[in-house]
């Protein structure tokens, strides 16, 4: 920052501040007495035609209030960073106070996380307190994409069903949140051409029993076997190890329409689930994973809660 500021302004502010405070004190001292001509005068202000006010003295304690403000401001400037050139005897900073308060809050909730951190996800999902914390975390960090009811949306998976891109075991869910995922479907538009993409899309439709053109599906089957089985498997059931979706079920991350499937095949997809390890820490992710696992395993979670 030094290249952007010079020490001049700090000195400038400090000098103005201190001179002003001292000048207030001198002014007060000088203005304690006055030379008057014999009797009490009015203040010279007149309202409502003829309403005037005596210029009577202030109570003596009032003067001390003035001096107290001067002493207060000097003590304050000595302790806190008010003068730009002096950081204050207490070394107080707003970021320091934030760090301190945060550390205090973290220390206060740590026993809770220690307790929950040791329980397995299955058991935690049955604990109402842990679920409430998990829901809070979910609504803060996850609802933006997965929606507040965790049922997802266009391009964002539904977390309440039993269909899992990367596997629905507690460990897999926890791993997904901690490290994030990057689901890549490569574009096949150049390799397959428009007709080829349409053929393979019809085959994919037929896999999950949706209405499709059977001739195109026949052609598409061969294209599928040549290009897609590496990830989606010979029967199209996908591979959770690399996040390749199962194409035979009724769950569609993007719409189940022919047009959407053609778009996926032609242009590919690139899905990013961000990593939350640094942002939330392993303790919170553990509770969050338990909440999410419980959404699609509510019977088991209930059983664990008993």
């Amino acid at each position: 920052m030094a290249e952007f500021t010079s020490s001049f302004w700090g000195v400038y502010i400090a000098v103005i501040t201190l001179v002003s405070i001292i000048a207030c004190g001198v002014f007060l001292k000088v203005q304690t007495t006055a030379r008057v001509a014999g009797k009490v005068e009015t203040t010279g202000h007149t309202w409502d035609e003829d309403l005037a006010e005596w210029n009577n003295p202030l109570p003596n304690w009032w003067r001390w209030l003035f001096y107290i403000t001067i002493v207060f401001s000097l003590v304050y400037l000595a302790l806190y960073p008010g003068l730009a050139i002096w950081g204050g005897a207490l070394n107080w900073t707003s970021s320091g106070q934030y760090a301190q308060e945060r550390a205090r809050a973290d220390a206060a909730v740590q026993p809770l996380y220690d307790k929950f951190g040791k329980s397995p996800v299955e058991q935690l999902a049955g604990n109402a307190e842990a679920r409430a914390i998990g829901q809070n975390l979910f609504l803060t960090y996850c609802a933006q994409c997965h929606a507040s009811d965790a049922r997802g949306g266009y391009g964002f998976p539904n977390l309440t069903d039993s269909d899992w891109q990367y596997g629905g075991s507690p460990d897999a869910i926890e791993q997904t949140i901690l490290a994030g995922r990057n689901g890549v479907m490569p574009p096949f538009g150049a390799a397959l051409g428009g007709e080829g993409a349409k053929d393979v899309a019809n085959y994919v439709l037929s896999l999950s029993g949706l209405a499709s053109d059977s001739i195109r599906a026949q052609k598409g089957k061969e294209i599928f076997a040549a290009n897609c089985v590496a990830c989606h498997g010979p029967d199209g059931k996908g591979n959770p190890a690399i996040g390749a979706p199962n194409l035979t079920d009724k769950t569609w991350l993007y719409s189940s329409s022919e047009a959407a499937i053609i778009e996926t095949v032609t242009k590919g997809r690139n899905n990013q689930m961000p990593a939350f390890k640094d942002r939330l820490g392993a303790d919170r992710v553990h509770i969050l994973a338990a909440y999410i696992w419980g959404l699609s395993n509510s019977d088991k979670a209930k059983a664990a809660g008993k």
Binding site: Q31, T32, T33, A34, R35, V36, A37, G38, K39, V40, N56, P57, L58, P59, N60, W61, W62, R63
Partner: peptide, 24 residues
């Protein structure tokens, strides 16, 4: 003036130094 604050009101002479604060 008789019941007013003594420092100010008790003045009889012209142009005197008086306190602008009164003790209660």
């Amino acid at each position: 003036p008789e019941t007013s604050a003594p420092p100010t009101a008790a003045l009889a002479t012209d142009d005197t130094e008086v306190s602008l604060y009164e003790v209660r």
